[in-house]
């Protein structure tokens, strides 16, 4: 195993977000087996096109290998990993210890999520944990980093260096409340935001307008989620079966018109994705894109070529003012252990 100096990848996402240039991240499928070469193969397909790579945590409630292992492999490969951490399977003790474990492996970016419920997965009889919610999880990550102590107040030696991020769901009701909830996440200490996949650009524009009014896009960089549609089946599945995702019928009809030919429909899916990227670019307050190819990693290269996306850390440029917020000095959990804090 060759070791890559940690300076080369560690903090690359933060540097990219601070550079002020559009940032590109993408997601790779978590390994569905025990072959490390599989992770490396997926990583190789995307590494030149992105600043950081997400690995999801048992998406859709279906068991995969823990993302921490895949992220550790990515770090070995010199890629800055973003670890998805969900509250579904672990209580606050396990989450804290996994955050430290991630840091030991050179992983510092943590995407804090509530987690898909196991009812949608293949083992719905499992006991849900949900000890804390995603906002509290952001606060935990921020607490560990800024105070250098566990939630109990016991010192961590040396303290971890975490870069917590959060998700945003503009396409789930109550629409008018979603920007406020994003504000709560930023207040808790989220330092970057990756949104749910945008197919309905009009709704997203409305959401971003409200986010802009609240001044959230000034406080934290927001990466718009985009994804290529691979087939009519994938489109209708996302439309009907995945709550919180909105696929307009217009796009489903376009996929139907592209026909059954694999090459043709895949080209159409990528074309739609590129068009959406072009439209999102016109919306103020977007710091970059997060590509979710859903087990189709080879599409990332095509999308970034067609949409002229390039990683922000590709070439050094003079840094403008930083949009990345500094860690919150006194996290909610440290300021008071009482159940609530005033806004």
């Amino acid at each position: 195993m060759t070791m890559i100096p940690a300076e080369s990848y560690r903090g690359r996402l933060e540097r990219a977000l601070r550079s002020g240039r559009p940032v590109v991240t993408c997601e790779i499928g978590s390994p569905d087996g025990t072959d490390p070469a599989d992770v490396r193969k997926r990583a190789k397909l995307v590494r030149d096109y992105v600043d950081a790579v997400n690995v999801p945590d048992n998406t859709g409630g279906v068991v995969h290998a823990a993302p921490i292992a895949a992220c550790a492999i990515l770090a070995q490969e010199g890629i800055d990993p973003i670890l998805h951490m969900t509250c579904r399977d672990r209580n606050r003790m396990a989450l804290q210890s996994d955050m430290l474990a991630a840091n030991l492996f050179g992983i510092r970016n943590i995407l804090c999520l509530t987690g898909d419920h196991m009812i949608h997965g293949d083992q719905p009889q499992t006991k849900p944990v949900y000890d804390i919610d995603s906002i509290a999880l952001i606060d935990v990550a921020n607490h560990l980093t800024t105070t250098g102590t566990y939630l109990s107040g016991r010192a961590i030696k040396p303290p971890p260096d975490l870069f917590p991020g959060c998700a945003a769901a503009p396409f789930a009701p109550p629409y008018e409340y979603r920007p406020v909830r994003l504000g709560k996440k930023v207040q808790a200490g989220a330092r970057f935001v990756q949104t749910q996949i945008v197919f309905n650009v009009d709704r997203f524009r409305e959401f971003m307008g409200r986010v802009h009014d609240l001044g959230i896009d000034k406080k934290v960089p927001i990466l718009a989620g985009v994804a290529p549609i691979r087939s009519v089946k994938a489109a209708t599945f996302m439309r009907d079966e995945v709550p919180g995702m909105e696929v307009p019928d217009r796009l489903v009809r376009r996929m139907e018109a592209a026909g059954d030919d694999k090459k043709k429909r895949e080209a159409e899916g990528i074309a739609i994705c590129v068009e959406i990227i072009e439209e999102i670019r016109k919306i103020p307050g977007i710091a970059g894109f997060h590509i979710m190819p859903i087990a189709w990693e080879s599409a990332v290269a095509k999308i970034s070529r067609d949409a002229h996306l390039q990683p922000a850390t590709a070439a050094p440029r003079p840094p403008p003012e930083a949009p990345v917020p500094a860690p919150i000095a006194v996290p909610v959990s440290a300021a008071s252990v009482s159940p609530v804090r005033g806004t």
């Binding site: 419920h117 919610d133 906002i135 769901a169 109550p174 709560k184």
Partner: peptide, 12 residues
Amino acid sequence: PKQLRNGPCGGV
């Protein structure tokens, strides 16, 4: 079902 105390999840 997720016992959230800080607002709705993204799966509504």
